[in-house]
Structures are given as C-alpha cells and as structure tokens.
C-alpha cells in the first residue's frame, strides 16, 4: 500500500471541480511561485522543532526526533505555519490509502468524487494510483489539480484511473514562467496538449497578477491554445489575492472587475466557450 503525505482534507468543496468533491491536499511542491498563497505546502518538514517551541497550546511534540501534531489540542491558530522558516507544516500526516478511503467513505453519498491537489500531487503519483483505484470501486470520479510540471504521457496506469485533470498555466512566456515559478513551462504545455487531446482536461487556470505578469499576452496565447484543442475546456481566470502570499517576494493588487472582464472577453473572442472568472 502506498502512503501519501497529506496536508489536509476538505470533505465538501465547491471549487475543486464539478459538483461536490472531497479535496485532498498533498504536501510538497517542485514550484516555488512568487504568488503562492499557501507556501506552507511547498516543502517537507525538516524537524527543526522551531514550531514545537512556538505552539501556545502544546499541540506539537517531538518523538524519536520527529515532530508530532495532536489534532485534538490544535486550535488552528496557524502560528506553527507562520514561524516555519522552510515553508512547511508540522500538521502533515503520512496516511495509508485505506485511511483516506475511510474518510471518503463516510461522505461518499454526498460527493461526485475526489480531487487531489497540493502542493504538487503528481510528485506522489504512486499514492494517486492506489487511491484512485479505490475511488473507482466506490463509483466516484477522480480529478487531479496539478501545476503540470510532471509528464502524464509516461504514466498510463495513472491515466487509466484518472477522470480529469485541472492544470495551471501560469504564464505562456518561458522566461516569465521561470521567474514566477522557478521552472520552465515546456512540460506544462505538453501536458495540456496531451490531456486535451485524450479528453481528460477539465480546466486550465491562469492567475491574473497586475503589474507583475504580462497578463494580456498570456491570456491571449493560452486561450488560443485551448480553443485549438477543444473550445469547451473550461478556462478559469483567477484574480490574484494577497491573502497568504509572502510579501517579501512580491507585491501586487487584486485586479479590477473591468480587467477580468476584458480578459474573459478576449478568451471568448479567441474561441473559448467556457470561460469563468473567480
């Protein structure tokens, strides 16, 4: 059985794919986006114990050199996340597939399926496969929310148990993408084409960040790409929101409704017929 490093599970989510979905967030990401709004999901815990000393409720302890988190004592003040110098969380739990299945089973009558997100969940694809096999037994749909940096094409086993993917295309310009995330975007775009062509691409997302990115050019190119593959693939334009973002890395503001509407109009004019703003 595979184990997954789980940051948290949201039993009912309205924003992680169609219908009501259990959203499972895995820990660890290979991008380091300037505008990341949950940077505590980026790295794995280094057991430096700084957070253990800072926790005001005694919810963190050390056992055999490893930080342990006590859910019952935790008051969710998030002081541990704020004091972590490594963008990690002591609340991450290594869960067996069966443990996650038990949680999903209790609510399976209420949901269309599960969406695994992150961090970057494709870094734990063995766990994804083992979880999705179980979800299929329960007649639930399986979605992946990914930054697109790890090739799908090589992972037939995953593709056979995965219904749909949602991919962030953060920038269409290679240099800009590198500056924003730390990595090149060539695999991201290959994944978009591959998944789009096999009918397993549910949604593309782009975060609109005033003054930092070339938003107009990005949306223009990305929407053309979507329209070429399949105009019904949903294109979600997301407003940048400063909540949770590391201010020392980047400062921007929330884009105006007018700007968002203009970009949505551009996407539609380029042939996308399912554009949403959020």
């Amino acid at each position: 059985m595979a184990k997954g490093l789980v940051n948290r599970i949201i039993p009912f989510s309205s924003v992680d794919g169609p219908g009501n979905r259990a959203a499972i967030f895995l820990q660890g990401c290979n991008f380091n986006c300037l505008y990341c709004h949950n940077p505590e999901t980026i790295n794995l815990c280094r057991n430096c114990f700084i957070c253990v000393k800072e926790c005001p409720y005694g919810a963190l302890s050390v056992e055999e050199g490893i930080v342990l988190w006590n859910n019952n004592l935790c008051k969710k003040c998030d002081i541990c996340l704020k004091c972590c110098p490594y963008h990690s969380s002591p609340k991450v739990v290594a869960m067996e597939t069966e443990e996650v299945v038990t949680i999903v089973k209790r609510i399976s009558g209420f949901i269309s399926g599960v969406t695994v997100s992150g961090g970057e969940c494709m870094l734990q694809s063995e766990f994804l496969i083992s979880l999705f096999e179980k979800m299929k037994d329960m007649n639930l749909t399986t979605f992946i929310d990914t930054n697109g940096s790890i090739p799908f094409q090589d992972n037939q086993k995953l593709i056979s148990v995965m219904d749909m993917a949602m991919i962030d295309v953060k920038s269409f310009d290679s240099e800009e993408h590198k500056k924003l995330t730390g990595m090149d975007h060539s695999i991201v775009l290959k994944n978009v084409e591959f998944l789009g062509n096999i009918g397993k691409l549910y949604e593309i997302r782009t975060v609109i960040v005033p003054d930092i990115l070339d938003n107009y050019s990005n949306v223009d190119s990305i929407s053309r790409l979507i329209a070429k593959i399949n105009p019904s693939i949903r294109y979600k334009l997301i407003k940048y929101r400063p909540l949770g973002v590391r201010k020392e890395l980047m400062e921007s503001c929330i884009p105006s409704d007018a700007m968002m509407n203009e970009l949505a109009g551009l996407s539609k004019a380029n042939g996308c017929n399912n554009v949403v703003i959020t």
Partner: peptide
Amino acid sequence: QNTEYILDIIKG
C-alpha cells in the same frame, strides 16, 4: 458557479 455542488449535497 457550481450548482451541482448543492445537488450532490441534497442527494447525500
């Protein structure tokens, strides 16, 4: 933006 969300919950 996702009314199926509520229908799923009602069915459940």
